[in-house]
Simulated assay, not measured.
Amino acid sequence: MAIAIPFFQQVTGINVIAFYAPILFRTIGLGESASLMSSVVTGIVGTGSTFISMLLVDKLGRRALFIFGGVQMFLSQIMVGGIMASQLGDHGGIGKGYSYVVLILICIYVAGFSWSWGPLGWLVPSEIFPLEIRSAGQSIVVAVSFLFTFIVAQTFLAMLCHFKSGIFFFFGGWVVVMTAFVYYLLPETKNTPIEKMDRVWREIGFWNKFVGEMDEQAKTEDA
């Protein structure tokens, strides 16, 4: 979990928008001033969505926000990729109307990230580790997050040149994988004290066998 959660958080493609939004918006036909303004708008949308996540996270639960946000990001990325593949091509341009549609879809994508994987990618790891290994687990989370932030930032332009509009399908595919990961393997930590996290892990069949083995080993050692 300490490796998978921050890895998935970075391969959503959010850093592509954060680092290269002005370049992306200029590519689809917006002027320089409009591109910068669009970047500001996406930032405001992201901030507002994070605030919404703070209000909903203890009501809906972590898993629900992860899954809803994943579906929202996937659909918006696929639609952006489809529009750019059909309208932009290798050297073409996108009409004004399509440019604003892409802008709206990217804002929807940023909103989906900002109320799911953005804040929860840091919140959930702080809740799932037992107290004995919590500091070590969080250290791994931060290190993996920074490592893949660097890797994505350094490789994106080369990937964009090779994949072109397919870059959105690439990151969309990772969103499918991470959403399935949450659905099948991540326990719900809502209203669960850290001291009782072992009970939460037992509720998921895949992890139950490992937790059960550790419990049996502990009983043997105590005896």
Rank of each mutant, 00 (worst) to 15 (best):
Ala2Ile: 05
Ala2Thr: 14
Ala2Leu: 04
Pro6Cys: 14
Pro6Tyr: 06
Phe7Glu: 03
Val11Ser: 06
Val11Ile: 12
Thr12Asp: 04
Gly13Ala: 01
Ala18Pro: 02
Phe19Val: 08
Pro22Arg: 09
Leu24Glu: 12
Leu24His: 08
Gly31Met: 08
Glu32Ser: 13
Glu32Asn: 14
Ser33Glu: 11
Ser33Trp: 00
Ser39Pro: 03
Val40Gln: 10
Val41Cys: 03
Thr42Ile: 15
Gly43Gln: 05
Gly43Leu: 04
Gly43Trp: 08
Ile44Trp: 02
Ile44Met: 09
Ile44Pro: 12
Val45Ser: 11
Gly46Phe: 00
Gly46Trp: 08
Thr47Arg: 02
Thr50Asp: 01
Val57Leu: 11
Val57Ala: 08
Val57Arg: 14
Val57Thr: 15
Lys59Ala: 05
Arg62Ser: 08
Ala64His: 08
Ala64Asn: 06
Gly70Gln: 13
Gly70Val: 10
Val71Ile: 05
Gln72Pro: 05
Gln72Leu: 15
Met73Leu: 05
Leu75Arg: 13
Gln77Thr: 14
Gln77Tyr: 07
Ile78Leu: 10
Met79Arg: 05
Gly81His: 01
Ile83Ser: 01
Met84Ser: 03
Asp90Val: 04
Asp90Ser: 11
Asp90Pro: 08
Gly92Ser: 05
Gly93Met: 06
Ile94Pro: 00
Gly95Pro: 02
Gly95His: 10
Tyr98Leu: 07
Tyr98Glu: 14
Ser99Arg: 10
Ser99Ala: 06
Val101Phe: 00
Val102Cys: 13
Ile104His: 03
Cys107Ile: 07
Ile108Lys: 04
Tyr109Asn: 12
Tyr109Glu: 01
Val110Thr: 11
Val110Cys: 06
Gly112Glu: 00
Gly112Asp: 09
Phe113Lys: 04
Phe113Leu: 13
Ser114His: 07
Ser114Gln: 09
Trp115Tyr: 12
Gly118Ile: 08
Gly118Phe: 01
Gly118Thr: 14
Trp122Asn: 03
Leu123Cys: 01
Leu123Phe: 03
Val124Met: 02
Val124Leu: 14
Val124Asn: 06
Glu127Thr: 11
Pro130Phe: 08
Leu131Thr: 09
Glu132Arg: 12
Ile133Thr: 14
Arg134Pro: 00
Ser135Pro: 10
Gly137Leu: 05
Gln138Trp: 03
Ser139Gln: 13
Ala143His: 12
Ser145Leu: 09
Phe146Cys: 15
Phe148Ser: 07
Thr149Ala: 02
Val152Met: 08
Ala153Met: 06
Gln154Ser: 11
Thr155Leu: 05
Thr155Ile: 01
Thr155Lys: 10
Leu157Ile: 03
His162Asp: 07
Ile167Asn: 03
Gly173Gln: 12
Gly173Lys: 09
Trp174Met: 12
Val177Cys: 10
Met178Pro: 02
Thr179His: 03
Tyr184Asn: 04
Leu186Ile: 06
Glu188Phe: 00
Lys190Asp: 06
Asn191Pro: 10
Thr192Phe: 02
Pro193Trp: 00
Ile194Lys: 08
Ile194Val: 14
Glu195Asp: 13
Lys196Asn: 15
Glu203Met: 11
Glu203Arg: 15
Ile204Trp: 00
Phe206His: 01
Asn208Phe: 03
Phe210Leu: 02
Val211Asp: 04
Val211Leu: 04
Gly212Leu: 00
Met214Phe: 09
Asp215Leu: 00
Asp215Ile: 10
Gln217Glu: 15
Lys219Ile: 05
Thr220Leu: 09
